[in-house]
Write a protein that binds this DNA or RNA. Structure first.
Lengths: 350, 350
DNA sequence: TTGTAAGCGTTATCAA
DNA sequence: TTGATAACGCTTACAA
């Protein structure tokens, strides 16, 4: 069992026969140091396996070399893949810049501001990234006002810089697609108004109808809360309408999946008897039957881009632009793959 | 914009009219300090919103107050939910103990040992938790030998302490269940040998057959790599067997889902014509058709328990027991819900 | 019970 | 180009 070696910069200085400050210059690749001296010092550092103490460095530089990612508490409307994918993007971008990533849970305690502010005041973090923040999370705005580097991943909140998916444009594309399939009566399963994504999809849906020359129909609108169960319930209401809508847009995939279950219980097969579109491109979307047409927003890309902007902000002290939009992509699968006319002929999909 | 206040222990000392060390004693709730003095100091700290600099504290105490979680690089055999659930458990347990959690990606660079060791040598982390480590990740053993607190979540590796699900017992229960449904010819879709979970399920499957008095049949064994596609392929091979097996055990859910797809293409409905069991209880398992019978191992519990043991290790300097087993649970759903006899009568499930 | 002073391991300033 | 030396903000003997 190798004994706990605890090398410091003094040891290196002694071994190299130079002073501590010379070692420091070598470590930090300063132009003030002679190449020969630097090489000699670095060689010794390599040999003995010395690593500078991050705490001591941080104490002097007043930085931590870490950013925090705030995630919603478990049980939130965003399911795991959403968080996991954005975290992957954040991790990759941060690691590339040699930053560490710490995770924080957005408990009420944290959001009340106390704990969030503390992370900065204790110099534990250099910046903060909020994934899946709600429009009610105003603690982020307070951090921003206090001059802290704070960014949002796929949500909007006051003047806090954000990287978001262009769900308005994407949902317009959904309606356009349905309209091009000759659908005139498009039902709508709307989610909650607390997420930016939801609000943008609502905006896009209405805009899309307008562009297609279709009216927004309250009688074809039902409400859910982003869960599978709420989609099932909402679809139940829509099935009472006469005549039935020929297409349904559910604001997210889980509600769409719930709606599909209700449709099938009612003897209607999505994609053959009725068109169904969701949103998110959750992993599940391609496995349900029939596979779900949906709107893909790459959470990985959103997370990575947000991390890059945050790190640049930390480095340069210059805040990024308030909004960075990333494209969404309409993923067409069997749940609305066929034209309405051919669907009516009862053609088997898949 | 409130200006950047940067309070130090000196400011508090001055405001409270005491010395810096007295403030320190108050912060750390020392018994050496007078209650009145402590109250006075803490009141001022509260009022002005002072927070001790974590770097300075860490420099003195030689601890970071953070643990690292090492996760496999994206694209690994474990899908996102696996990581996301265990991370949730780890986060909850660590937060409860007022520890922070930093994420590291197990890149080759990291695993080579250099980066992993550096995290400790730079005093950035007090302990390390590896989720989904492979049996080839021997850098963890080297860390352990160097006296670092290191634990495994649901894998085994040398003498590194681990918290794992009892997949042997669980898989025995699967075979027992199938045998009790009168299945005698149980086909087997085996995954890779690089995961502990896989090896334990293999062990449990063989043990289960033995207990049921059934032979292990090479001719009913096919191989996959834990992916949906590989399950699909493996099932294709098994469908060539005459007579067909009446039941199939796939080592994990994704392979089982692939197998189900192949069965259906072949005109066989899992749960009616053939019994199918997977493993993991992935979120997807309950949404596929028919819903999949599977073996649940709570990754949340495994993560939380591992974090608790790691933190205790850090606190007490006493390593935990080498193995902590957590129970698995057989989740019976439609894919093998009926007895073979009734299934043969063609009864509609669900 | 409180205060003084000596570190902790770096970086930065300023002479040499 | 290099080497003393003074911060950085805190904890902890040791003294008072």
């Amino acid at each position: 069992m190798p004994r706990e070696k605890k090398l410091t910069i003094r040891d290196i200085a002694r071994l190299a026969g130079v002073s501590r400050s010379t070692v420091s210059l070598a470590i930090n690749d300063s132009p003030l140091i002679n190449d020969r001296t630097k090489a000699k010092v670095l060689k010794i550092i390599e040999e003995v396996g010395y690593r500078p103490n991050a705490m001591a460095r941080g104490l002097v530089s007043d930085t931590s070399g870490a950013i925090s990612v705030v995630v919603p508490p478990v049980g939130h409307v965003f399911s795991d893949w959403y968080f996991a994918e954005s975290l992957s993007g954040i991790l990759d971008a941060a690691s590339a810049a040699d930053f560490r990533v710490a995770i924080e849970i957005a408990t009420e305690d944290f959001k009340s501001g106390r704990r969030a502010v503390q992370q900065f005041e204790e110099r534990r973090t250099d910046g903060l990234l909020a994934v899946g923040a709600l429009v009610t999370d105003d603690y982020l705005e307070r951090l921003l006002e206090a001059g802290r580097p704070v960014m949002l991943v796929n949500s909007e909140l006051g003047r806090v810089p954000a990287v978001i998916a262009d769900n308005v444009e994407g949902t317009v594309a959904i309606v356009h697609h349905l309209a091009s399939l000759r659908h005139r009566a498009i039902a709508y399963i709307k989610g909650l108004d607390i997420t930016t994504t939801g609000r943008h999809r609502d905006e896009g849906f209405r805009k899309g109808l307008q562009l297609a020359g279709l009216p927004f129909r309250d009688d074809l609108t039902a409400f859910g809360d982003f869960t599978e169960a709420s989609g099932y319930e909402a679809m139940g209401q829509l099935l009472d309408r006469k005549p039935l809508p020929t297409a349904v847009f559910a604001m997210n995939d889980m509600m769409a999946i719930g709606a599909a279950r209700r449709m099938k219980e009612h003897g209607l097969l999505p994609g053959r008897d009725i068109a169904l579109v969701g949103g998110d491109d959750a992993p599940l979307a391609r496995y349900v039957e029939p596979p779900l047409t949906t709107l893909r927003q790459s959470m990985y890309d959103l997370g990575a881009e947000a991390a890059r902007l945050l790190l640049k902000w930390i480095r340069t002290k210059q805040p990024p632009p308030p909004r960075t939009l990333l494209h969404t992509e309409l993923i067409i699968r069997e749940s609305c793959g066929a034209r309405l006319a051919s669907a009516r002929r009862g053609g088997q999909l898949r």
